[in-house]
Measured scan of single mutants.
Amino acid sequence: MKATFQVPSITCNHCVDKIEKFVGEIEGVSFIDVSVEKKSVVVEFDAPATQDLIKEALLDAGQEVV
């Protein structure tokens, strides 16, 4: 499964690193693409990962998800 999250609070590479760390810890996540320019995060994943778990990880990383 693939999901795109709009994350307007992404401003720098530190944000990218933190997002990759938090989302990458979720079992089932196979790909993460964070774009500072587009302020988006694209995640490819399989169970047990879910969109809700990914959104929670983004929030835990200090990001706003819309």
Rank of each mutant, 00 (worst) to 15 (best):
M1P: 04
M1Q: 13
K2F: 08
K2P: 03
K2R: 11
T4N: 06
T4C: 10
T4H: 11
F5R: 00
F5E: 04
F5W: 06
Q6L: 14
V7E: 01
V7N: 03
V7T: 04
V7P: 00
P8H: 08
I10H: 04
I10E: 03
I10M: 07
T11R: 13
C12N: 13
C12K: 07
C12H: 09
C12F: 07
N13R: 14
N13Y: 12
H14R: 14
C15R: 06
C15V: 08
V16R: 09
V16H: 04
V16Q: 06
V16K: 12
D17P: 06
K18T: 09
K18A: 09
K18D: 06
I19L: 04
I19R: 00
E20M: 15
E20V: 15
E20L: 15
K21A: 08
F22G: 04
F22W: 09
F22D: 03
V23M: 05
V23G: 03
V23R: 01
V23F: 02
G24Q: 07
G24A: 09
G24Y: 13
E25V: 11
E25M: 13
E27I: 12
E27L: 10
E27R: 11
E27G: 06
G28R: 00
V29G: 02
V29M: 02
S30N: 09
S30Q: 10
S30W: 13
I32N: 01
I32T: 03
I32D: 03
D33Q: 11
D33R: 11
V34M: 04
V36K: 04
V36H: 04
E37K: 09
E37D: 09
K38A: 10
K38D: 11
S40H: 10
V41D: 04
V41E: 02
V41S: 03
V41Y: 02
V42L: 11
V42N: 06
V42K: 08
V42D: 06
V43Y: 01
V43E: 01
V43D: 03
E44W: 15
E44D: 06
F45G: 02
F45D: 01
D46V: 14
A47M: 10
A47K: 09
A47Q: 09
P48N: 03
P48C: 04
P48G: 02
P48M: 04
A49C: 05
Q51L: 15
Q51E: 14
D52F: 11
D52P: 05
D52Q: 12
D52R: 11
L53N: 05
L53K: 13
L53M: 11
I54Y: 01
E56V: 10
E56F: 10
E56A: 14
A57P: 00
A57R: 06
L58G: 01
L59Y: 09
L59M: 11
L59H: 10
D60P: 03
D60E: 12
D60H: 14
A61M: 07
G62K: 04
G62L: 14
Q63N: 05
Q63D: 04
Q63W: 15
Q63S: 05
E64K: 11
E64P: 06
E64N: 10
E64H: 10
V65L: 07
V65H: 05
V66N: 07
